[in-house]
């Protein structure tokens, strides 16, 4: 087969062409990226406002998925899409008001520790309430069909819906922050909190609403992604660090940066898995042979097997070489 260069053997045997894999990984990467964006947008907003990296952000993503599972079991998916994020947002606001605000006076390290502990507690609470095994949160049956087939690949209706919703949220968020009065106050509170306070706005309350709003956004991601990625207690710890990677690469506090970095990481990790580029020839250049055990490991490495390392490698390099990220206006 001529079109099989750089494809994994399994895909090649099924007669899948390079173009198909490209489209497939682009679509799925975009989807995953937009999901990441729903988390990273809230996180970056919270960071630029309060200077605190919310370690528990992905926990609200998880809460969204679990709430949606319960609500969709009782009254259906559409109410869940509304009420689950609302519930998570209220919990987020309460935690900001009675937790984070108490810790604020001890400094940023204490805030980081608080959210780290919170992430741990939420994971354990989820295990306490919903058990340690994963929950059958399924794609709503009304959207569980193939919407269209293009280039020999099926595009499920639910995934297209996910993509459209997340794009819609991005547009709405952009409009909210740049074109409305609320957005202008938030933007002003980001850079000049004292001045905004002096103008009569309650800045701590703005912080609380923003924190709750960001948690709600993450929960929407959970409602949409929980049934695709799986709803289990480990989902937060799996996704949490990746979201950090995204906002560090995009630049802390930059919404556009968060979008581009989300899509970049989404497509990169998906493409690394589907193309599965072998590193053997690369290591062979340095005389590594599969004769030794360690050499064998290196030669057998492919972009798919190292795809879990790539985001962190990029983040560390970014922090070392350009700590402000791609579009950030200040250092981490």
């Amino acid at each position: 087969m001529a079109g099989c260069v750089g494809l994994s053997a399994a895909l090649c045997q099924e007669g899948v062409s390079v173009v198909q894999v490209l489209l497939f990984s682009l679509f799925n990467g975009l989807l995953y990226g937009m999901l990441l964006f729903m988390l990273s947008s809230g996180l970056t907003l919270i960071f630029s406002m309060m200077g605190v990296l919310n370690f528990a952000h992905a926990s609200f993503f998880m809460l969204g998925a679990y709430f949606a599972y319960e609500i969709s079991r009782l009254i259906g998916f559409w109410p869940a899409l509304f009420f689950a994020p609302l519930g998570a947002a209220v919990i987020g606001a309460v935690i900001e008001r009675y937790g984070l605000r108490t810790v604020h006076k001890f400094g940023h390290v204490a805030e980081l520790l608080f959210t780290f502990g919170l992430a741990f507690v939420i994971e354990e609470l989820v295990q306490m309430i919903w058990g340690k095994t994963n929950k059958p949160y399924l794609i709503p049956s009304s959207m569980d069909f193939t919407l269209f087939t293009w280039q020999g690949l099926d595009y499920s209706a639910y995934r297209v819906f996910m993509l459209l919703t997340s794009v819609g949220i991005f547009v709405a968020l952009y409009w909210l922050l740049t074109r409305t009065r609320v957005g202008l106050i938030i933007q002003a509170a980001l850079s000049h909190p004292q001045m905004v306070g002096a103008l009569g706005h309650n800045v701590p309350r703005i912080f609380m609403y923003t924190f709750g709003f960001g948690c709600g956004l993450a929960a929407i991601g959970g409602v949409l992604g929980g049934n695709v990625l799986g709803t289990e207690p480990a989902m937060a710890i799996q996704l949490g660090p990746i979201v950090f990677v995204v906002i560090v690469i995009g630049g802390l506090g930059s919404l556009g940066g968060a979008l581009i970095a989300s899509i970049f990481i989404g497509i990169l990790t998906n493409a690394a898995v589907s193309y599965d580029v072998p590193f053997g020839p690369f290591f062979a250049l340095f005389g590594v042979s599969s004769a030794t055990d360690i050499g064998n490991d290196l030669v057998r490495m492919t972009s798919g097997s190292v795809s879990s390392v790539l985001p962190y490698l990029i983040m560390v390099l970014m922090l070392i070489l350009r700590p402000r990220g791609l579009f950030g206006n200040r250092d981490v």
Binding site: L53, H108, L112, F244, N296, D297, M301, V309, Y312, L319
Partner: peptide, 27 residues
């Protein structure tokens, strides 16, 4: 740098080594 940058780099190295335990099987 100290502070958040240091915390994030340490997180990155931690995650990388954890992922490597599954990749470099011989070690």
């Amino acid at each position: 740098r100290a502070g958040t940058t240091f915390a994030m780099i340490s997180l990155g190295f931690g995650e990388m080594v954890t992922a490597l335990t599954l990749i470099i099987v011989s070690f």
